[in-house]
Amino acid sequence: MGRAGLGEFEHQILLIILRLGREGYSVSIVAELEARTGREAATAAVYIALRRLEKKGLLSSRLEPPEQSGSPYPRRYFALTEAAFEPLRQARRALLELWDGLEPVLDD
């Protein structure tokens, strides 16, 4: 997996943030991810993926201080950047191409 490409987990996280209205913090992301996949997500993995996506420029983040977040701790919100859409599109296209004509195999 190259630096530019999108890992499966990264792919999922980007989609979750998209579903959350382009912005979310790890609590909402983990909760949504677990609800959608039905599996427990490792918070640390989510957290690291978020930071990696930020490094790749696909996410941007802002820190919300405790006064605003309403919790005794600060929260970090992640939002999709414009740059995130191209790899998402590519990933979707690649998947669809791979699936093309194979759907009947799984039907029954």
């Binding site: 913090y25 790890s26 983990v30 909760a31 918070t43 957290y47 919790s71 701790y73």
Partner: peptide, 19 residues
């Protein structure tokens, strides 16, 4: 926890814990 993000991680984990 990553040092620069420790408070964020602690806070968010606590929130998830409560949920």
């Amino acid at each position: 926890a990553p040092r620069d993000e420790r408070d964020v991680v602690l806070g968010e984990l606590e929130e998830l814990f409560r949920l």
